[in-house]
């Protein structure tokens, strides 16, 4: 009786299982913005009949949380999200169903049940990026990288929602180096003769994105591709993200949840 007319009726079922997923943004669908992807994944969850849990309140929201999403236009082999379910499911089945419900290019490649303590976000401290630079020669890139590494600070400017900001790009870069185009991993298509850059960048605030590092290379070495290419048409791909080890390697954030099962089976 105490309930007023404007309150929603009935509660939402509680979360009984949390699943963590790795997904990709490949090819043309790298132009999907994070907002677009969030909407698409919500619909895909409904289409796949996944028993998603909802938040309480007037406008219940599905329990989905995303770990640091790649910028619009940047491809990724390693994006992560977590969903809360109101009924238990087999993670492998969920992986298959959700992948089929999403457009090709947005591919769900792994799902594990969250068992270890700590959030996904806590386990992500750095990313490995690969950047293809059409119109840039290997020598040009090597010289720019050497100049960049020699500095202790490389300031760049970017237009953010808060206006024009100046920040350092050097400190967040753990490693930077040119690679030969023969070693490109599956999913990365080399379309034109171009130099390739690998980068490990720590997660900092304000975030340092792959295009910021390119701006840094321009600042220190006037790096500029030959026409009609520009640094804006460089193609970046996130190859991995996770916990940065003292050795400079990146640990898959799903490892912690996978481990107990893996040990039992060994």
């Amino acid at each position: 009786m105490g309930r007023t007319k404007n309150q929603p009726t009935g509660g939402q079922a509680p979360v009984v299982q949390r699943i963590r997923l790795r997904y990709t943004k490949r090819g043309p669908l790298r132009f999907t913005s994070h907002r677009d992807f969030a909407r698409a994944v919500e619909r895909a969850i409904h289409r796949a009949g996944i028993p998603i849990a909802f938040s309480q309140g007037f406008t219940p929201h599905p329990k989905i949380s995303f770990a640091s999403a790649a910028p619009t236009g940047v491809a990724s082999e390693a994006e992560y999200l977590e969903i809360g379910l109101r009924e238990r499911v087999d993670p492998a089945d969920l992986c298959k169903a959700l992948d089929a419900a999403l457009s090709p290019g947005l591919d769900v490649i792994e799902a594990v049940e969250a068992v270890a303590p700590g959030s996904l976000a806590d386990r992500i401290t750095a990313s490995l990026w690969r950047i293809e630079l059409p119109g840039v020669s290997d020598e040009q890139l090597a010289a720019a990288v050497a100049a960049f590494v020699a500095q202790s600070e490389v300031l760049v400017e970017r237009l953010t929602k808060q206006g024009r900001r100046t920040f350092d790009t050097r400190d967040a870069v753990v490693s930077i180096g040119a690679v030969s185009s023969q070693t490109s991993p599956p999913g990365v298509v080399v379309t034109a003769p171009c130099a390739i850059l690998d980068l490990v960048v720590r997660q900092v605030t304000p975030s340092v994105r792959p295009d910021d590092v390119l701006s840094g290379l321009r600042v220190v070495a006037d790096l500029e591709p030959s026409a009609p290419h520009s640094l804006k048409s460089a193609r970046a791909t996130r190859l991995a993200q996770g916990t940065l080890t003292p050795q400079g390697e990146i640990v898959d954030p799903l490892d912690a949840d996978r481990e107990p099962v893996a040990i039992g089976e060994r």
Binding site: P28, L29, F31, T32, S33, D36, R43, R47, T72, G73, S103, P104, G105, T191, P228, S230, K232, S233
Partner: peptide, 23 residues
């Protein structure tokens, strides 16, 4: 004509609208 178009997409606003891939 996607290979030619793709070069332009990083330079325009809301490129996803030109990509297709709808369900």
């Amino acid at each position: 004509v996607f290979p030619q178009l793709e070069q332009l997409l990083p330079l325009v606003s809301k490129p996803i609208q030109y990509v297709g891939g709808e369900l």
